[in-house]
Nucleic acid binder design. Structure first.
Lengths: 344, 344
DNA sequence: CTGAAAGCGCTAACAG
DNA sequence: CTGTTAGCGCTTTCAG
C-alpha cells in the first residue's frame, strides 16, 4: 500500500518537521526567520522546505494571526449596463495600485461592484477577505461612501475632496487642473472655449469650476452654450460633439474632462473638416498612455498615476495602522503637445 | 467597566449564538441555509446576523473546509521595464474574467508577475490563497508554463495552442483569424500586403501563418520585406512603421497583429500623407472597444472577449473539479469597418 | 535554543 | 431539529 507520490495532500509544516527531526514550532520559527533558532537548523529547514516546494497555508496563518495581507480594490461599474470599464485610465490605475501593493507585500483582490450598491463592498471587509478597501472613483455616490466610512470600513477613495466627507480621498487637483487647461488655451489666444464632460461626477465638476475660474480671470463671460454634456464613454462623447457641431456655435478651443473624451472629440472635429489645433485647440485630462501617441499628440492635464497608486496605498496602510490619514490632493501639471500648439 | 460599543472585536458566530440562545453550530447551519434547522429559528438567526452586520470569517471557514473561492489572475509584465500593461485588450479581458468569476461566486486575486519568473505564480496556489490560476498571455514562456502544469497547479492560460503543451489553453483561432484578415484585404484587390507584429509571441506567430496561407492560396509569393517586426507597445509600433516607410517599399494593405498596433500604424501612415483606406487598407486584431470609435473605424478580427472569460473560467472550474479540461479554440470573425472599405 | 500545548473561528460528525 | 466535540494548519506563550 505505498502511497502514490503526488497523489497526496499538500505538504505541510508537520511533514517538514518530521523530516527535519524537529517540531512544527521550530519549523514555523525557522521559516519566519526567527533569531531564536540556531542558524544552521534554520538554514537546513529553509532549504528542506524549498526543496519540497512547501508554502505556508495562508488561511491557517491568517486565522491564527487574526490578520491578512489582502487589499480589496473596487472599480464600480455602471448599473444596468454592467459595461466593462472602458477608460484606459482605470487600467493604468490598476497597474499602479498593483505595483504599490506588491511592493509592500500585499495581495490585491479585485472586485466588481454595482455602483448603485457600493455598500456591498463592506462584505469584502466584514468577511475578512480584505483588510482594507480601495475604491477607484466616486461616481456620484458620495452618500454611500460616507455610510461605509461610518461603518468603520478602512477605505481610501480615488476622487475629489467633497464637503462633509467622512472618508479619505486621494485625487488630483481637479480645480487647478481645469484652471491650467483653460488658462493654456486662453494663452494660445483662444476665446470661444467649450467644456465637455459630465459634471455630475465630482471630479469633472471641479475641472469645470477651474475652467470657469480661468475664464472669469480673463474677463470672459462663461457661455452656457459652450458647455457640452458628455459621459466618459467614447460613443456618447462622439455623439455629444456631433450634436454640438450641428448647432453651428462657433468654437476655437475645447477642454475635455478626460483624454478619452478629447480623443474622440478630435476625431469628430476632423470628420467635420475642422483642423486641430488650427481651427480648434484641444486639451484633455489624465495623460493616459495613448495621449502621447494619438494623432495629433494630445495636450493634456497630467494626473501622475504612478505616484497616485503609492499615495493611495500609503494612506490606506496608515488607516490600517490606526493613524488618522488625511485626504490628499496631488498636484497636476499640463503637458503641452500638438493639439494646442500655437499655429500663428 | 462598560465596553465601548464599537471598540470591540468583530462580532462572530458565538456572539450571535448567545444572543439567539442557541449554539454556534446552529448559527452556522442556519447561515448556510441548512434544511435541518427549523425555518423560524433560521429566519430569526439570519435576521439577527444581518442586523449585526455579521459576516463570516473566511480564513476560518477556508481552513476548516480546506477550500476557498478565490482564483488568481495573472497578467505577466515585461521584465526590466516593469511596464504597465498598456493594451486595452487586457483590461477588457480582466473585466470579462471578473464578470465570469463573480457570477460563479469566486473572488479574483490579481497578481503582477515578472514574465521571466512565471513559476513564482505557483506560490499563489501553494499558499492556498488561490484555488486555481488564470494566466493571460503566454508571452513566449511556454516552457515555464509547462513546468507549472507538471507541478499540478490548476491553471488555464489565455493564448495559442502549442505543440507539447501540458497545460490548458483557451484562445481565439489565430490561424484562421490571420487568414480571414488577409483574405479580406486580397478581396479588396490589395496585393502588397504587409504584416506587422512580433512573431516571437505564439499568438502572433499563428496570425502570421494565417497571413502567409492566405497569400499562398491566392498565388502571391510572401515577400519578407513586407514583414514588419513590432512589439505590442504604441511607441515601438509607430517607430517600426516609420522605419518601414522610410524604406520606400510599396504597400497597399496592412495586417496588424493587434488593434493597438493598427491604430498607431494608421496614425503614422496619415502622417506620411498616405490615406486609409484609399492608399493602404488596414486590418487589426482583437476588436477592442476603441476599434469601433477610432478614426476611421478599424476593420479587425474580433476575439469575442466576453465569451472568452466564460470559457476560461469554465475550463478552470472543470479542472478544479477533477475533470479533464481540453484546450479550446474560439472562432474569430472579421468585422469590416472603414479602414478597409473598397474605395474603387 | 527547542518542544508541548493551546487556540484563532468555523463546520461536520455524532449523539441525543 | 439542536448541542457537543473535535480539529482544519499555523503561531506563540510558557516551560524546559
Amino acid at each position: 500500500m505505498t502511497k502514490r507520490a503526488s497523489e497526496n495532500k499538500k505538504v505541510q509544516m508537520m511533514d517538514i518537521a518530521r523530516m527535519a527531526g524537529v517540531s512544527a514550532a521550530t519549523v514555523s520559527r525557522a521559516l519566519n526567520g526567527s533569531e531564536l533558532i540556531n542558524a544552521e537548523t534554520r538554514k537546513r529547514i529553509t532549504e528542506l522546505a524549498r526543496s519540497l516546494n512547501y508554502s505556508i497555508n495562508q488561511s491557517a496563518k491568517n486565522l491564527r494571526l487574526g490578520d491578512n495581507r489582502t487589499i480589496g480594490v473596487v472599480i464600480p461599474y455602471g448599473h444596468s449596463t454592467r459595461q466593462h470599464i472602458s477608460d484606459p485610465f482605470f487600467l493604468g490605475m490598476l497597474g499602479s495600485l498593483a505595483d504599490a501593493l506588491t511592493d509592500r507585500g500585499y495581495d490585491m483582490l479585485l472586485s466588481r461592484v454595482d455602483s448603485d450598491r457600493l455598500y456591498d463592498l463592506a462584505a469584502l471587509y466584514d468577511t475578512g477577505r480584505a483588510k482594507g478597501i480601495i475604491v477607484i472613483g466616486q461616481w456620484g455616490h458620495h452618500d454611500q461612501l460616507n455610510e461605509l466610512a461610518m461603518r468603520r470600513v478602512p477605505m481610501v477613495v480615488w476622487g475629489a475632496q467633497l464637503p462633509k466627507q467622512m472618508y479619505v480621498t486621494v485625487g488630483s487637483d481637479n480645480l487647478s487642473g481645469g484652471f491650467q487647461a483653460t488658462e493654456h488655451l486662453l494663452q494660445q489666444g483662444r476665446r470661444r472655449i467649450a467644456f465637455i464632460g459630465d459634471i455630475a461626477m465630482p471630479e469633472s465638476a471641479l475641472r469645470f469650476d477651474g475652467y470657469k475660474n480661468a475664464l472669469e480671470r480673463s474677463g470672459i463671460a462663461f457661455d452656457p452654450a459652450l458647455q457640452i454634456h458628455s459621459p466618459f464613454t467614447p460613443l456618447e462623447a462622439q455623439a455629444a460633439v456631433r450634436t454640438f457641431l450641428r448647432l453651428g456655435i462657433s468654437v476655437d478651443g475645447l477642454f475635455a474632462a478626460s483624454d478619452l473624451i478629447a480623443i474622440n472629440a478630435i476625431g469628430v472635429l476632423k470628420e467635420n473638416r475642422l483642423s486641430v489645433p488650427a481651427d480648434v485647440s484641444v486639451v484633455g485630462y489624465d495623460d493616459i498612455d495613448q495621449a502621447a501617441h494619438s494623432f495629433p499628440p494630445l495636450t493634456t492635464v497630467r494626473q501622475p498615476i504612478n505616484i497616485a497608486g503609492e499615495f493611495i496605498v500609503n494612506s490606506l496602510l496608515q488607516l490600517l495602522n490606526g493613524e488618522a490619514a488625511s485626504s490628499q490632493v496631488i498636484p497636476t501639471s499640463i503637458v503641452v503637445r500638438e493639439t494646442s500648439r500655437t499655429v500663428a
